[in-house]
Structures are given as C-alpha cells and as structure tokens.
Amino acid sequence: MESKRYKWTRRAIGIVSLLLVAATVIFGLWITPPDVVQGQLVRLIYVHPPVAWVAYLAYGITSIASTLYLWKRTRNMKWDLLAASSAEVGVIFTALTLVTGSIWGRPAWGVWWTWDARLTTTALLFVLYLGYLALRRVPATSHQRAVRSAIAGLIAFVDVPIVHQSVVWWRTLHQGATVLNPSLSPKIHGEMAMTLLLGFISFTFVYAWMLMHRYQIAGFEQKILDIELDQILEERLHEPGMESMQVELSPDVEQIDRHSKV
C-alpha cells in the first residue's frame, strides 16, 4: 500500500527533523548569546523567519503542483493531492508565522500587530489559503475539485505580489519605511548566523516530513474512494435490472460524498 522506499525516506526525514529541531531549540535558547540591542528577544529570530520561509515554500509547491494539474500533458490526480497537502501544511506554518511575529512585535515595538507590508500580506495569505481549503471541502467529483482548487490556488499565489505591492505603497506613501526591516538586519554573530541557518534547515525538514505524511493520507483517502467505487461498480454490473439504483437519491452517494472531502 505504500512503497518501502517512501516509508523509510519519510521515517529518516522524520528522525532527522526531530534531531534538527531539538538542536535549533538548544542552540537558540541556551547556547547563543543574547543580542546587544535586542537582548533575549533575538532568540525568536531562529524560529520566526524560518517558519515564514516554509510557509512561502509550501505555497510555492502548491502553485507548481496546481499548474502541473491544470496543464493537460502532466495532468495527474497526484498533483492535486500534493497541492492540497502542501497548502494545508502551509496554512499551519502561516499561522505560526503570524503568531511568532506577533509575540516578537509586542516587546520589540510595543504592539501585537502593525500594518506593515509583510505582516498584512501574510495575514491575507493566511485567509486566501483558508479559502482554498474551504473550497476543497465543497462536494464535487475529484476532477472537478482538482480543477477548481488548482485555479484558486494559482490565483491566490498570483495575488500575493499584487497584495504586497499595494500594501507597500499604502504604508510608504503615507508613513515612512516599514518597521520590520531594521530589526531583520542586525549585526549577526557567527554562532547566531549558524543557528539561524540551522533553523531554516530544520523547519524545512519538518515541512518535508509533514508534506510526505499529509500526501500519503490524501493518497489513502483517494484509494478508499476508489475501492468503494469499484464495489459499487461491481454491484451495478452483477445485478442488472436491480431496483432502487436511483442515481440521485441513493444513500450510498451521500455516504461517499462525505468521504470525498479530503
């Protein structure tokens, strides 16, 4: 049901990500020194930018997979499932980006939220992909759902630069530069740079592991649907002229529809 290689790769990635995250936490919280300007707060830099990077990476993968589904020559259900899986993981990481950003912002600037271009864009991105996931829950045939969500996923991605540009103008045209930029470029200590890099790598590994797992679950759900479909097909084929096979009203259809919400 799943290839041995896939399983072992996933396990290896899982173990590596656990170790990497543990290392990031240890380095981030205890080994690296506090910053001259930001003090202890600098420790959040080892998680916040990496988490944000993973969110964008996830949406990038969703867009590529969506494009591959929409393009007829590479059309395959797998791309749809991959796009969906990546988007779901992406939403988790976007939420974390917003939360960690907020936690950082409160002591650094005295507010939980600022209408900075980056923050505002990320918040809209979060809502856009929540919409994408909501659209996927609409009952439809798998092809229908795949096409619709691929288009929505692609549009959401196209929308990001437009949203970003508009928010940048919105802020810069009326009140100076953004707040985040200066704090993002402190003079970085060698040890700190290393830990930041470690953060990027470890969260990317976590993403890979989650994506593989989520994708496999999507595959299982698809397989269960296929099997159920085969069973109904069998029934229809072996009992010709059978009554109560009403296409519109069959309780079977209702039941299967519920499963189709990946």
Binding site: L229, L237, D252, V253
Partner: peptide, 30 residues
C-alpha cells in the same frame, strides 16, 4: 463516474443515421 457513483458502467452502443432508438429501462438505469 459522477460524485463517486458510477452512473454508466461500461456501456456499449452504436448507431448510424436515420434511426429512431427507443431507450428504456427502470428508474436509475442510466
């Protein structure tokens, strides 16, 4: 397959010009 229900299950049919084909069957036969 529509909505994960097989509404046609391997249907064979051929017709040429000038035919009047009466299609019958019970409710839900497709």
């Amino acid at each position: 397959v529509s909505g994960n229900f097989p509404i046609l299950t391997g249907l064979d049919f051929e017709t040429g010009p000038g035919e009047v084909v009466l299609v019958k069957g019970r409710n839900g036969a497709g």
